[in-house]
Computed example of a mutant assay.
Amino acid sequence: MTRFDADDPRERRKLFAEAIAAHRTRASSFVTLEADAEDDDAPRPWLQFGDNTFNVDVTDAELDDLKTLVGEFPEFRVEQLESPETAEGTNARITARSDPNRLATFADRVFLDVYDRPETYRAWVAEV
């Protein structure tokens, strides 16, 4: 990989696919993708992919959107939902056995449809 961020939809998906392929080639534990925050004080939304599983933290409203999105990807399924009493949301684990391009499309859609980022949001590969 030679670049680590993108804000064009096609370039973001290409970036995500390259990061997932690099993660698989290196046999790293996971790859972390992040997107712009809504404002400077808000945390950046993120997701991780490793061992054929996406890991994502969501609010209750975002969880509904995530479940809807997963329904559009028949080869994916929600494997585990955890909502600790001390947390303000849910950690979701989604099994996703597919090629890097399909995984990248899903990741981009998480940021767009679940985290409600604009079409031109900037994303980063934070860790491979």
Rank of each mutant, 00 (worst) to 15 (best):
W46R: 13
R93G: 01
L47K: 04
D36C: 13
R24V: 03
T25Y: 05
A19W: 11
V78Q: 00
D41P: 03
I20C: 02
I20E: 02
D60E: 15
R77I: 04
A37L: 07
P43V: 10
V31L: 04
G71E: 05
F30G: 01
V56G: 04
A35N: 09
D57S: 14
N55A: 15
T59M: 07
A27Y: 06
R77D: 08
L66R: 04
E34I: 14
A37V: 06
W46F: 15
A42C: 05
F30R: 09
G71H: 02
T53L: 09
T90K: 01
W46P: 01
A92V: 06
A42I: 05
R93D: 01
E62S: 13
Q80L: 13
A21E: 10
T32F: 09
V78L: 10
G71L: 07
Q80K: 15
L15A: 12
G50N: 06
F54Q: 04
I20K: 00
F30Y: 15
E82C: 09
A19V: 08
R44E: 14
A61D: 13
F49T: 02
N55T: 15
F73Q: 05
F73N: 02
T68C: 06
Q48K: 15
D65L: 15
L33T: 07
A87L: 11
I94F: 01
